[in-house]
């Protein structure tokens, strides 16, 4: 079984802070991390590898330094890594990203299962996985928390919905986006770490993928960001201080006036 895991390097939004005066993003000390949900996808792939004999290839599209993210997952035990990097890829929306990723997966060939995190924490779109599946014309399931092979051609997945859970049966090859319930990502091992350090990571650009510069990156995107702005600040903030009785009274009145149901 050949599993491809798609990962993304993202700014560590956890440490992003808003400057209270300028109300802008403070990026000082913000490092790049592997999208946390993608680490769950890597873990899910490794679990399949633990249980059977699978080969795992991890791919990412990004600037040259995204190679770091690939070495990190190699040190956790995946077999191979592939970097999709080209100046032409910059500014890609989810469509253009999906075009690039699906071209790479097609070129890899013989892929039985594609795993992605449910979404990336920088964009939170949750679109790339389903779009890649669509471009590859394979079935997919999103928000999956459990996976098991049914037979050589079928996979049983349990997915989380807003209302509960659903169990789906998919024919393979298929694409699955996973949530954290698939299992906590394992840490690297020393042997894998040493191997990762020396591993050769191929870099594919538009030439290798046989794509036109107009099909990828900003040129190949359908959507365009026209404005980025800070979320409007709450100007109506009330701070309640004083004695306990006063505070209780004030909050109660505040919620009553706001007509909160149930108060």
């Amino acid at each position: 079984m050949h599993i491809v895991v798609c990962i993304k390097q993202v700014p560590d939004t956890k440490n992003v802070r808003i400057d209270p005066d300028t109300h802008t993003l403070v990026r000082q000390g913000v490092e790049s991390i592997i999208n946390p949900f993608d680490l769950f996808a890597v873990e899910a792939a490794l679990q399949i590898k633990d249980a059977s004999s699978a080969t795992i290839t991890v791919i990412t599209m990004g600037p040259p330094q995204a190679e770091e993210a690939l070495r990190e997952v190699l040190s956790r035990g995946v077999d191979a890594a592939l970097l999709l990097s080209d100046r032409a890829f910059a500014g890609a929306d989810t469509w253009a990203t999906s075009v690039t990723l699906s071209a790479a997966i097609r070129k890899l060939g013989n892929v039985d299962l594609i795993l992605c995190g449910k979404q990336a924490v920088d964009g939170d779109t949750a679109q790339v996985g389903p779009e890649v599946a669509t471009l590859l014309d394979i079935p997919y399931a999103t928000f999956v928390k459990k996976m098991e092979p049914l037979d050589a051609q079928h996979l049983k997945v349990t997915r989380q919905t807003d209302e509960g859970t659903e169990v789906w049966k998919l024919s393979t090859p298929a694409l699955i986006t996973v949530i954290k319930e698939v299992g906590e990502p394992r840490l690297p091992s020393l042997r894998h770490k040493m191997r990762a350090k020396k591993a050769a990571i191929p870099v594919w650009g538009i030439a290798e993928l046989g794509l036109d510069a107009n099909d990828v990156g900003l040129c190949g995107s359908f959507t365009q960001v026209v404005r980025v702005f800070s979320p409007p600040r709450r100007t109506d903030r009330v701070i309640i201080e004083g004695s306990l009785e006063e505070q209780v009274e004030q909050l109660y009145r505040y919620l009553k006036e706001a007509k909160v149901p149930g108060i």
Binding site: L187, P188, S189, L190, K193, M194, K197
Partner: peptide, 14 residues
């Protein structure tokens, strides 16, 4: 050495 630093890094992460 590079290997020794890797050991440190890994143990520190754990």
């Amino acid at each position: 050495t590079e290997e020794q630093q890797m050991i440190q890094e890994l143990a520190a992460q754990i």
